[in-house]
């Protein structure tokens, strides 16, 4: 089947839908990282309960349910998961966004510092 024949098999709504989908998802993919807070601190939620709130500035490793979370140099990763897919481990180091482990229902989200120490009025002024 030739290319022209192939395009002839698609309807105008088909092509319009393809362009629309690519545009909407492409633009939102580009926008999402801009809106994400970088650095700051991480939240670790297990089964929808907040277990830890840790600053990214402090190097640390903790283990939750066989899942080892490592913080180093302002970034976080899952070093070991113990589940078959190991998707969270393969994701590697992140400093924005989230790592999600479905089998153990662990969500690690990076968020901006809530206290904002540099923006508040400090005690000496």
């Amino acid at each position: 089947m030739k290319i022209a024949e192939l395009i002839g098999q698609t309807t105008l709504p088909d092509r319009a839908l393809l362009v629309l989908l690519l545009a909407v998802t492409g633009v939102s993919m580009a926008l999402v990282p801009l809106m994400l807070p970088h650095g700051g601190q991480i939240r670790i939620e297990v089964k929808n309960k907040l277990l830890y709130k840790l600053p990214l500035t402090e190097d640390k490793a903790i283990t939750i349910d066989g899942l080892t979370v490592e913080i180093k140099g302002g970034k976080v990763r899952v070093a070991e998961s113990g589940c078959p897919g190991r998707i969270c481990v393969k994701q590697g180091w992140i400093d924005s966004g989230a790592i999600i482990c479905l089998p153990k229902r662990v969500v690690i989200t990076v968020e901006g510092t809530s206290s904002k120490p540099n923006k508040g009025v400090d005690a000496t002024t």
């Binding site: 998802t25 993919m29 939620e45 999600i100 969500v107």
Partner: peptide
């Protein structure tokens, strides 16, 4: 069913929908 964290779902949604396209 698994994660009641709307933010993380919204973060990943555009990537998944793009690859799905």
């Amino acid at each position: 069913v698994f994660i009641q964290n709307l933010r993380s779902i919204l973060i990943i949604a555009p990537v998944i929908l793009f690859l799905g396209t």
